[in-house]
Simulated scan of single mutants.
Amino acid sequence: MGSPATVTYGPIFIGVVFNILLYGIMITQTYLYFQTCKRDKKWMKLFVMALFVCDTVNCAFDITFLYVPLVNEFGNVEALNVATWVFATDPAMTAIIAGLVQSFFAWRVKVLTRSWIAVGLIALCSFAQFCGGLGTAIAVGMIPEFVHFQKFQVIVIIWLAFSAIADTIIATSLVWHLKRNTTGIPATDDVVNRIIRMTIQTGLATALCAIIDLVLFLVTPAGLHLIFNLPLSKLYTNSLMSSLNMRQGWQYDTSRGVGNQSRDQSRRMSLPRNVNVVRPDQIRRPQPQIYIDVEQHEMVDIVDMKGQPFSDNLKDQVYRPSDKPHTVRTTGSDSGAEAD
């Protein structure tokens, strides 16, 4: 027979480990956001900081309720079967973080699609899961025994089911809108397809985790569902931060495509109207030219110091003209040879 802590605190320990790992990723995501997204509005920066604080508090609570029964109450078997008030904070913190993230994505859906129907459904489901998370926290405080958690499964179903529905509506709305607004330009469509893939992956991760958590909670009375329940809040914050930080990645990836086109257009718009822009294909190559240099020799009479002409024989000895009276030199861009 194994340790009494295996059934309950084994899954809790694994869930806390995943929670801390995702918290480390959240720290990196937050740091990158404040380094690269300095132009964002102040309210968005405060929103990101609030999510980071909530994640930090949630991580501290998770470590605390794992430390107290395993260290402070070491050897006390009864302490392993009862959830403390610190444990009850986890569903409440998860519901608060999920509600904030889903509200942000609802605002994004409203800005992109202008569909109040989708926004209303997301807000309704988000509010329902928020109430379900708070109700679960209150129920844990009222029924702290782990083996009796099945008594308040209705409120847990409301919490996790509506959370998964809200995530699915967000992902579906964004994907539908992006698919409708494809432009046919390869560079732009490539960026849109990457946004679609990222939206599906992040929305599917949170929705799938919530569904698995709910199924395991309903199927088995053991604490296996806590492996997926404890990291759920970090999945929400990381999905939001990845969508915010990926905006810089889209800008860098399209620097050779849409970015260059927009820069070329801005340069053309900044030129004066009387300046004609010459494209590279309009520049003519220089045509080869031929230059001819002619050298002439003139026959003159040579005289001596007294002004008397030399004899013809002496004259031929002193100056004999070349057999070639002139030289033709041909030069060009295609051939650099000279003909003398």
Rank of each mutant, 00 (worst) to 15 (best):
M1D: 07
M1R: 11
M1L: 08
G2A: 08
G2K: 08
S3F: 08
S3D: 06
S3V: 01
S3E: 02
T6K: 05
T6V: 03
G10P: 01
I12Y: 04
F13W: 09
F13V: 00
I14Q: 01
I14M: 09
G15H: 04
G15T: 03
F18K: 05
F18H: 05
N19A: 09
I20Y: 02
L22F: 10
L22C: 12
Y23G: 11
Y23I: 06
G24Q: 13
G24K: 07
M26D: 11
M26N: 11
I27A: 10
I27H: 01
I27M: 06
T28A: 13
Q29S: 01
L32V: 05
L32I: 05
L32P: 09
F34L: 09
Q35F: 10
T36H: 11
T36I: 02
T36V: 00
C37F: 04
C37K: 11
K38Y: 02
R39S: 15
D40K: 08
D40P: 00
K41A: 14
K42V: 15
M44I: 14
K45T: 06
F47R: 10
F47H: 04
F47S: 05
M49P: 03
M49N: 00
A50R: 02
F52Y: 14
V53D: 04
T56E: 05
T56W: 07
N58A: 06
C59Y: 04
C59V: 11
C59I: 06
A60R: 08
A60P: 10
A60C: 14
I63Y: 01
I63K: 02
I63H: 05
T64E: 02
T64N: 01
L66Q: 00
Y67E: 09
